[in-house]
Nucleic acid binder design. Structure first.
Length: 590
RNA sequence: GGGGCUGUAGCUCAGCUGGUUAGAGUGCCGGUCUGUCACACCGGAGGUCGCGGGUUCGAGCCCCGUCAGCCCCGCCA
């Protein structure tokens, strides 16, 4: 018996190799597929390690075993005992890791008969997956599929690697409460009614933010947690109502220290998935990111960057630009190498996408030899285009307006151009840091400055003076990790001066009394001797999704919610009975 | 909260301009078969066309509403 052997089995199905030949083994697993040739029966037996072919034949299987093997239904759990046999060369199956051997079964026990599965586990080549609704409803079957098993096994390895990496860096894993206190700002909280205190509620944590800061004040120095977080907001393919963060915080650190810790973790995670990543990651400021890519999470696998062409274009007197050019408006665009390959239909669809984002539309010029065409082509010469970096066979895509409008438009156009032209990426793994985020952003409705991050983020020390007079120009010690256009996580250096923290709460519109009621415990802690500290949170589900090549978070979470935040398998949420509600002092309005 | 796509056999899908008895593959059931590996072959069962209403001589198909899943916008400090 190998170390993996148990009361029921000696090996896992998927681990058998030519070296096991002539060994007597017992295997437990699920009937993946059966091929009944009459006198011979083949069963592909599956467990988490993979598939192995079990052969039943008159030469080695008693008649009753052979007969029962012919009647095995899909997904039945069986234990077989028999000899591992090397297959003759012409009977090997190179598509199977175990394909050089098969097990000649002498015994067969049916341990878990199975009804016909509602959705297939064994899928024919080229057969589509069952509808996602059904995969979620019959999750016990969907998770048996080798692809899902591989995703969750990768997730396990990544978790262990994160723990190991942070432990080696002397981070302490400390758990924080799940039943916690509602927060006044940010995402909607999931609330849990209190039985003992009528009308009072716990909240599930949106993140362990305040607790980890308290742990720094307590002197734990370096903390991490694989933390479950909850936010009651609408969902996307990459957003679940409960999700997992690799949460960390450290004391006596500056921004450089935190970025170093996070790089160490990310490099280790990517290595675990088989990718070699260089350090340090390149940096760009939030301002640069918005200028060159129109987004705070640029996909830097591709060189294509946004340029400001206002000065070059102004003298040309192009009506499309002229009409919109006023204070604060700029002409910005993309010089697309090989953009001549974009069809008229492509360009029209790009322009349509631009309009849907509220842009003025998209002006375009194509250069093909001496031929210059496009919506504003007649205003451009080859020489002008050359100065914009638009060569033979290239195209220029431009828009005009205030940055607030043109940045998202050009971000979208850039992504679409990349998708359509599918240029070879400069690198497969483009990590970067986006630093110097603004502390405030204008409220889209009122224009008033509102906090761009949580209210514990420290202002940039050079900008503290602007806090009152020019808040929108005030930078924060806040940073994001970005990978191939995905935000992997964010962090900041925190406020440790209770006076500064009170001023920030005042900015949020909290009166001193309200600030005291909601965050008094934090203010008290900060006043009790707080070390400088900062931290980060990595979106672990998203990292796993990207490393697994999965299409959505749902494929790397064992039991996820639908986009309507329902759990189809177990049927949550569900109504509560009148007795439960009474105990919780709750009356439900319908 | 708003927009889009999808919903037909257990599963994946087709179903023309509204027209007779709604099809295919797979799975399932029965049968033949000793080297298959998506086994092959023969036969069979299997349908609330998501749900409700409407238009029409007639609705899987058109209209209205609704439910569910997915994607997007808002939202996610």
């Amino acid at each position: 018996m190998t170390p993996k052997g148990t009361a029921w089995r000696t090996h896992r199905c998927g681990e058998l190799r030519a070296a096991h030949a002539r060994q007597r083994v017992r295997l437990g697993g699920w009937v993946h597929r059966r091929r009944d040739l009459g006198g011979l029966v083949f069963v592909d037996l599956r467990d988490r390690a993979g598939l192995v072919q079990v052969a039943f034949g008159p030469g080695w299987s008693p008649p009753d075993v052979l007969a029962r093997a012919g009647g095995l239904g899909s997904e039945t759990v069986v234990v077989v005992e028999g000899e591992v046999v090397a297959r003759p060369p012409d009977m090997r199956n190179s598509e199977l890791a175990t394909g050089d051997v098969e097990v000649h079964a002498a015994q067969l026990e049916i341990l878990g008969p199975a009804v016909t599965p509602a959705i297939p586990v064994a899928r024919a080549k080229g057969e589509d997956l069952a509808a996602e609704e059904l995969r979620l409803k019959y999750r016990h079957l969907d998770l048996r599929r080798p692809e899902m098993q591989a995703n969750l096994m990768l997730r396990h390895r990544l978790l262990q690697r994160a723990r190991e990496t942070l432990s080696d860096l002397e981070f302490l894993e400390i758990e924080t409460p799940i039943l916690t206190k509602p927060t006044p700002e940010g995402a909607r909280d999931y609330l849990v009614p209190s039985r003992l205190h009528a009308g009072e509620f716990y909240a599930l944590p949106q993140s362990p933010q305040i607790y980890k800061q308290l742990l720094m004040v307590c002197g734990f120095d370096r903390y991490f947690q694989i933390a479950r977080c909850f936010r009651d907001e609408d969902l996307r393919y990459d957003r679940q109502p409960e999700f997992t963060q690799i949460d960390l915080e450290a004391s006596f650190v500056g921004q450089e220290d935190v970025l170093g810790f996070v790089e160490a973790v990310l490099v280790a995670l990517w290595e675990e998935a088989g990718h070699v990543i260089g350090r340090p990651f390149p940096r760009l400021t939030h301002r640069e990111a918005m200028e060159r890519y129109g987004t705070d999470k640029p996909d830097q696998r591709y060189d294509l960057a946004i340029a400001d062409w206002t000065a070059q274009v102004r003298p040309l007197g192009v009506p499309f630009f002229q009409s919109v050019m006023k204070d604060g408006s700029r002409v910005r665009g993309l010089a697309v190498k090989g953009g001549g390959a974009l069809s008229r239909k492509d360009v029209d669809q790009l322009a349509e996408a631009a309009k849907q984002l509220g842009g003025a539309g998209l002006a375009w010029v194509k250069r093909q030899g001496e031929q210059i065409s496009g919506s504003v082509g007649k205003h451009f010469t080859a020489e002008t285009l050359g100065r914009l970096g638009v060569g033979d066979g290239d195209a220029a895509l431009m828009t005009v307006g205030p940055d607030r409008v043109t940045s998202p438009v050009l971000d979208k156009v850039r992504q679409e151009v990349i998708r359509r032209l599918a240029p070879r990426p400069a690198t497969a793994h483009a990590f970067c840091w986006v630093v110097e985020f603004p502390l405030f952003e204008p409220d889209p409705a009122t224009g008033r400055p509102v906090f761009a991050h949580h209210p514990f983020t420290s202002p940039h020390p050079e900008d503290v003076a602007k806090l009152e007079g020019d808040p929108l120009a005030c930078r924060a010690l806040h940073y994001d990790a970005v990978y191939n256009g995905h935000e992997l996580g964010s962090g900041s250096i925190r406020i440790t001066d209770p006076a500064v923290q009170r001023r920030v709460f005042a900015h949020l519109g909290l009166t001193p009394a309200e600030a005291e009621a909601r965050f008094g415990f934090l203010l008290a802690a900060l006043a009790a001797g707080a070390p400088p500290h900062g931290g980060f949170a990595i979106g672990f589900d998203r990292v796993t999704m990207l490393l697994a090549g999965a299409a959505s978070l749902r494929d790397v979470i064992a039991f996820p919610k639908t986009t309507a935040a329902r759990a189809l398998f177990e049927g949550a949420p569900a109504p509560a009975g009148p007795a439960d509600l009474a105990t919780l002092h709750i009356e439900v309005k319908r």
